[in-house]
Every structure is written in structure tokens, then in C-alpha cells.
Design a protein around this nucleic acid. Structure first.
Ligand SMILES: [Zn+2]
Ligand SMILES: [Zn+2]
Ligand SMILES: [Zn+2]
Ligand SMILES: [Zn+2]
Lengths: 132, 132
DNA sequence: TAACAAACGTTATATTATAACACCATGATA
DNA sequence: TATCATGGTGTTATAATATAACGTTTGTTA
């Protein structure tokens, strides 16, 4: 039985900030934003981030060293993540496409390696930026 | 007409090291390995890495902040990269699968964004590590 | 040769992430 | 109850990754 995860104080603070943000947040920008709440050190941020990632509440955008809240439900606790990233405005959007997800989850390496997890990052210019 | 790219001295040194390596190399480990050749500063490494990436000679493994030589020819100058990564021994293998590449290159975001580039990283335990 | 671009070398600094240690609360267990 | 393991916290220090800024040199092209 999957028991409900309860968040610690710091985890909740960090998650709140990431969820409220319009785009990906960097660890140190999170830190600066929570100093008023008594969090003073990078360790406290990184510890919360690690746990939140484990829980699938947030994802790390590897190409940007930044973190976004999970808006999807089929990333299956971060085993299968895909994002679209605008190279102009830095917007990140979690892609939740069942076909894509199935295709990649079923993909097997020719050399016999069985995959447990993947992360896919697409880059381009978003609609909004194209207009400008 | 695509003219043949000729590498500068530093670019060649850095590429040689990456090509000879069995696995992904980190920027600072490259630096330590070329100090005998008169390269002393991170800038020199990062500049070479940037150019080599532009030329498609190497790729960055984003989840590891490490660099590998391109062993493929259909990654189309790093517009479409896919890797399999062993979470145990850190081995990285560039996946060159025409179907996968076509599927992802043709993938279009529901929200109308047109992708120019993608990077896909698969994680698992490689055959060799499974035996142990 | 003059002009330009690209690469170089160097110093300094910014950014991202982890190590290590002590403390406290909770809940299991002997 | 005592003790122990677990997980979270706070803190200081430091490691690892990456870029800014400056002037110089080299190679190409007009
Ligand atoms: Zn998600
Ligand atoms: Zn945009
Ligand atoms: Zn390649
Ligand atoms: Zn392995």
C-alpha cells in the first residue's frame, strides 16, 4: 500500500516556491527566496530538492541545472520525463504524451541493456517568442 | 559547400583525449590531463569543448556534466542525440537508431512549438554490471 | 600590407553542489 | 524504560563546474 508522503517543513517551503514559479528555478535562486523563512544554507535546499525529486514532485532540467514542479501524472515518479524548452525565453513545459512515453519506455538498447528511466529534452523557439 | 573543419591546436588536444577515453570525461579531468601540454586554465578547455560541440565532434552528457566523442554519424551535428548510461559503471553509449531518431525528429509539441534539437538520456544497468 | 576574425593565455570570479559534524524528534525494539 | 535506528535540521567549510574580462597572437582575406 503506497502510503501518503508527508513533506517536512523545508521540503514544503521549497516545493511551494517551485510550484508558484512560472519557469524553472535554480537552487541558489530558491535559496535567496527562502532566506526570510530561516533557510540559510545551500545544503538545506539541495536536501529538499533531492527528496522532492525522489518523490516525483519536481524534476531537474539537466541542461539548465534548474528545477520545475511536476505537472504531469504519467511520468511515473520521474522514471520517464520529457520537456520542451524554449531557447529564447527559457520556458519549460513538461510533455505528457502517452504515445511518446510508451514508445520510449518500450525502447530497448540493441546491446541488451534494459532501461529503467529516461529523460528527454527538446529545444526550440516557443510560439510566443516566434511572434516577437 | 561544407568545407572541412580544421581544428586548432587546443581543440585537437582536447579532442584527442576525449576520443581516447573509454568513458565520458569531465572538463577538469581533461584539464589535469593536458597540463603537461601547456594548457593551464579552465577557459582553454571550455573554449575547445564549446567549439567541438558546435562541430558535432563531441557531445555533452548533461546529467553528468561530462563529454564524450561522437561515434555516430546520424546525430546530424548534435541536433539529435541519444545516449544510454549505466548507473553503476558510468558507461555511456551513443545510441544510433534510425527509427528512434526519425520518430523524435518528427515529434511535434501539441502546443505548436517546433523543435530544432533534442537530447535523450536513458538510464539503466549495463550488461556487464548485471553479471557482477 | 591592412583589416578582421578566431584562437590564445591569463587572472579573477561566479555558479553549482557536496562533505562533514553535531543536534533533535520520532518510532521501533529489546 | 532504555537503546537504537531513521530522517530531518542547522551550520561551516570546501569541492566542482563554468564564465567574465582583458590584452595578445595567429591566420585569412581584401
Ligand atoms: Zn512529471
Ligand atoms: Zn520562448
Ligand atoms: Zn553523435
Ligand atoms: Zn555498467
Amino acid at each position: 500500500m503506497a502510503r501518503v508522503q508527508t513533506l517536512s517543513r523545508n521540503q514544503q517551503i521549497v516545493l511551494d516556491i517551485i510550484e508558484k514559479a512560472k519557469g524553472p528555478l535554480k537552487a541558489y535562486s530558491i535559496l535567496f527566496n527562502v532566506q526570510k523563512k530561516g533557510i540559510n544554507a545551500p545544503q538545506q535546499i539541495y536536501r529538499a530538492l533531492d527528496k522532492l525529486i525522489e518523490m516525483g514532485k519536481i524534476h531537474k532540467i539537466e541542461s539548465k541545472n534548474a528545477f520545475v514542479a511536476c505537472r504531469s501524472s504519467d511520468c511515473e515518479i520521474s522514471k520517464a520525463t520529457a520537456f520542451s524548452i524554449c531557447e529564447s525565453c527559457e520556458m519549460v513545459d513538461e510533455i505528457s504524451d502517452t504515445k511518446l512515453s510508451k514508445y520510449l519506455s518500450g525502447f530497448n538498447h540493441k546491446k541488451g541493456m534494459k532501461f529503467k528511466r529516461f529523460n528527454l529534452e527538446f529545444f526550440g523557439i516557443c510560439k510566443k517568442c516566434k511572434k516577437d
